[in-house]
Nucleic acid binder design. Sequence first.
DNA 1: CCTACGATGGACCGCACAGTCCATTCCCAG
DNA 2: CTGGGAATGGACTGTGCGGTCCATCGTAGG
Lengths: 206, 206
Amino acid sequence: MVGKLTAKGRATRARIVEGAAAVLRERGVASATLDDIMARTRTSKSQLFHYFPAGKDELLLAVARFEADQVIEDQQPHLGRLDSWEAWERWRDVVVERYEQQGDECPLGSLFFQIGRSTPGARAIVVELMRRWQESLAAGIRALQAAGRLPADLDVDARAAALLAAIQGGVSILLSTGRSAHLRVALDQGIADLRREGDAVDRRGG
Amino acid sequence: MVGKLTAKGRATRARIVEGAAAVLRERGVASATLDDIMARTRTSKSQLFHYFPAGKDELLLAVARFEADQVIEDQQPHLGRLDSWEAWERWRDVVVERYEQQGDECPLGSLFFQIGRSTPGARAIVVELMRRWQESLAAGIRALQAAGRLPADLDVDARAAALLAAIQGGVSILLSTGRSAHLRVALDQGIADLRREGDAVDRRGG
DNA sequence: CCTACGATGGACCGCACAGTCCATTCCCAG
DNA sequence: CTGGGAATGGACTGTGCGGTCCATCGTAGG
């Protein structure tokens, strides 16, 4: 479809995706129209269909990819460097702050519900996001193991999975109720559990 | 609006809500139309607007209420009687099974995104559901305290909140990926944490 | 057995919005 | 500088679908 894109074309395409993402956040996926996106991005119908020949769904998919990347990016550099308890705490703060600021908007969730399980690409994006996210958490736990702050026989994947679930649940409740208390509690408790394992190491190791 | 409903009328209204719920689950909220609901429930346009004068939004709201009640109901009688570790385990199994069976459908989540934050009633339904859910968990924890299986100084609300977040996160990931592993891990770990607190009591209490 | 009102049927309307088409302009390669 | 494809503008179309309206039927209550 888009094999030939000049520099200008690439810029326009990017402008459309980013503008569409903004519109979807503001208006909500359900009520955002192509006209809204055109107005926001100063483009015409033909441009939209030029860069996304398959129409709205293809555009939404591109926005979903954009938002998924954003999720990971917004947690950097902390998420990629969880090699001390201080780093974990900083990361926690970033996550809480990011989602408190985002408030009750969930662009990715909305997009997922809109595009639906029908499209194969949609699920792949979320699955990949979850995989990357959990893998980063697992890497952080392993880093602590390597530093001797956590026991070597810890079930890393289970811990990472539970942490990811804690975050998702907290965010989910934040979206529903507007209160971030659950996100904080869930994250705090998850990290506290980890530290407790570390304390065991400290006691054993002297 | 609906002050006067004969027995027949009430039956029809209920049939519409239940049928609409089924259609929304199958087709997805985004692509389900009033015509679909009419076909499924063997009703006419005028009936839909007779029982839901404000139109589709009002109907969706009614379905949301229905689904929210369903969520709690599906966990009974276990959720209302979490007074032993065995009861907690049984409840866990019911939750996992229920959501595994539901698969990647999330009627309530979809409805929430569709109706949106604009409507005040929508959020209230979810907030109330979360409140009831967490309160039941808290009651279960208090029952264990009363039975001497958990320490009296446990932060009941924080535990209940974290458990609720664990469930929500697990379900959320199940919806996204189709895998229930996170839900299982999160629930198991949450309950295991609780039991660990109980073990402390046992050691102290003899 | 009426009669008033609720329950039902279904034709009809209007519009919002995705998607099409062609004309025009821009810009790089040769 | 020139030809051609990419980029853009914008009018136009088709229709799906929510919502309105009125006519008819069923029935509970007197």
